[in-house]
Simulated scan of single mutants.
Amino acid sequence: MNLFKHELRINQTQNMIKITNSIREDILKSGIKDGIVVVYCPHTTAGITINENADPDVVRDMIYGFEKAYPTIDKNYRHFEGNSHAHLKSSTVGPSQTLILDDGNLIMGIWQDVYFCEFDGPRNRTYYVKIIQG
């Protein structure tokens, strides 16, 4: 099986959760050594990104920056659910990332990790990992 489904329970309103290790576990389970790995989030108020893993303040600063660009509360938002900010943040980050798999290893920079980005929590979330040989 080359498609893996993961579920997260996120208790914060906004957060970025490292998911690189679960992706690496999926690669081991798949037995695929070379190809591409697609990580996909099927939610319109969350996303997937790659960013620095060394300093936790980077995550804090990213959430802060998104909040400055797309504030949670803005009297001009019209979406009845009240989460327009999360839709904007999700569209900016995007729903997926594609990674290169070489000899069983993800090609990533030393300071990089893959993150699930929550912008409208707390929620139960799902993301998928598809490993394609090639």
Rank of each mutant, 00 (worst) to 15 (best):
N2W: 10
N2F: 14
H6Q: 06
H6S: 07
H6E: 08
E7V: 11
E7C: 05
L8F: 03
I10K: 01
I10W: 03
N11S: 11
Q14R: 00
Q14T: 00
Q14F: 03
Q14V: 01
N15E: 02
N15I: 04
M16R: 06
M16Q: 11
I17W: 06
K18Q: 15
K18L: 13
K18M: 13
I19T: 15
I19V: 15
N21I: 14
N21P: 11
I23P: 11
E25I: 00
D26H: 13
K29Q: 10
K29T: 08
K29C: 09
K29Y: 13
S30I: 07
G31K: 03
G31A: 04
G31L: 05
G31E: 04
K33D: 15
K33L: 13
I36D: 00
V39K: 10
V39W: 11
C41D: 01
C41L: 01
P42W: 03
T44W: 08
T45S: 04
A46P: 14
I48G: 08
I48P: 06
I48D: 10
T49F: 07
I50S: 04
N51H: 02
E52D: 01
N53V: 03
N53P: 02
P56K: 15
D57W: 14
V58E: 13
V58C: 14
V58I: 15
V58F: 15
V58P: 15
V59F: 14
V59Y: 13
V59L: 13
R60K: 07
R60V: 13
D61N: 14
M62N: 04
M62F: 06
I63T: 00
I63H: 00
G65A: 08
F66N: 02
F66S: 04
E67V: 04
Y70H: 02
T72C: 13
D74L: 15
D74K: 13
K75M: 08
K75P: 09
N76F: 12
Y77I: 06
Y77L: 05
R78Q: 08
H79Y: 14
H79K: 11
F80V: 04
F80D: 01
E81P: 10
E81K: 08
G82E: 11
N83F: 05
N83S: 04
H85S: 09
A86R: 01
A86Y: 07
H87E: 07
H87Q: 10
L88G: 04
L88A: 06
L88E: 03
S91M: 03
V93A: 06
G94C: 12
G94H: 15
G94A: 11
P95Q: 01
S96E: 08
S96Q: 08
T98E: 07
T98W: 09
L99G: 04
L101G: 00
D102K: 14
D103M: 08
N105Q: 09
I110A: 07
I110Y: 06
W111Y: 11
W111K: 05
D113A: 11
V114E: 05
Y115L: 09
Y115D: 06
F116Y: 12
F116T: 12
C117M: 10
C117S: 05
D120S: 12
G121F: 09
G121I: 09
P122N: 03
N124F: 15
N124L: 14
N124W: 14
R125Y: 10
R125E: 07
R125H: 06
T126F: 09
T126L: 12
T126W: 08
Y127H: 05
V129F: 02
I131G: 00
I131P: 00
I132N: 07
I132P: 07
G134K: 12
G134S: 13
